[in-house]
Nucleic acid binder design. Structure first.
Lengths: 132, 132
DNA sequence: CATTGTGGTAGACTGTGTCTAATGTAGGAC
DNA sequence: GTCCTACATTAGACACAGTCTACCACAATG
């Protein structure tokens, strides 16, 4: 809570109640919610919060590098609350998205793609979590 | 053209004029169009073609494994006319999506992700095509 | 002919994300 | 504290992607 206020301030964003609630939700959750899931969750506390405020706040956080919007779900972007590089695994049974640590996979050959300047990449895997 | 008719037939799809136009467009283009771009292009020949027909045809082609829908552009899925595994590079200057051959990159560590059964993965790169 | 089935069409509908005009508020100057 | 200004929030309209449904066209079968 205090951390969230400090985080917003350090990003140069006035810590309004709405922004605190949004930031607290996405950083505590540790999942990959859509903007509408954030809206629904924050509405439980702030019943009048508008869609525009959620999108404004998410864009502001993204501009400051605290979150990223990622195209990992059909129909809607998801919010990735981890700014550091990592890979993603989409569980097609549950729809859940799992973070795979950067060092768990090694990609060779990127620097040989001489036609392009590449400033970011990730592996996107599809599969299913093993039971038991 | 004849190839397209044969392709549709071999997939078990009646080669109607609309389906031929759609299939010809996406396979000749070799790019990654959105459904609405396909609709707009095919409308030049078939002015009354409806959105539903385009989506129906794209879904049918996807069911037969001839195309894939991929989440590589903000706001809309793109159609990938290459069924074989490959990677993708998004040119953030032009918005273009380039196919990277499967063998150009090597990903190590996938089989060590023991908590998951993984049946597909790809590297998604972001960067810019070098000039000259 | 009538029937059946497949394919196409128009348009309504849902959901995501953007934008705008008007109101509300945070926080500094005094 | 009060005032002020710039920024935040809000409701609702809008644009677009994608789905769905009811109806129409047409060919094949009997």
């Amino acid at each position: 809570m205090q951390d969230t206020v400090a985080l917003l301030r350090s990003a140069g964003l006035t810590p309004t109640p709405q922004r605190i609630a949004i930031a607290r939700y996405i950083f505590d959750l540790g999942d990959h919610p859509t903007a509408d899931e954030v809206l629904a969750a924050v509405r439980r506390e702030h019943s009048t919060i508008s869609r525009a405020t959620v999108y404004n706040t998410l864009h502001a956080l993204a501009d400051k590098g605290l979150v990223r919007s990622r195209m990992l779900r059909e129909g809607a972007a998801v919010i990735d609350a981890r700014p550091e590089a990592h890979h993603h695994l989409i569980d097609e049974a549950s729809g859940k998205i799992f973070d795979i640590p950067w060092d768990a996979l090694k990609v060779a050959g990127v620097s040989e793609l001489n036609d392009f300047d590449i400033w970011e990449y990730q592996v996107v895997l599809r599969g299913r979590k093993r039971q038991g």
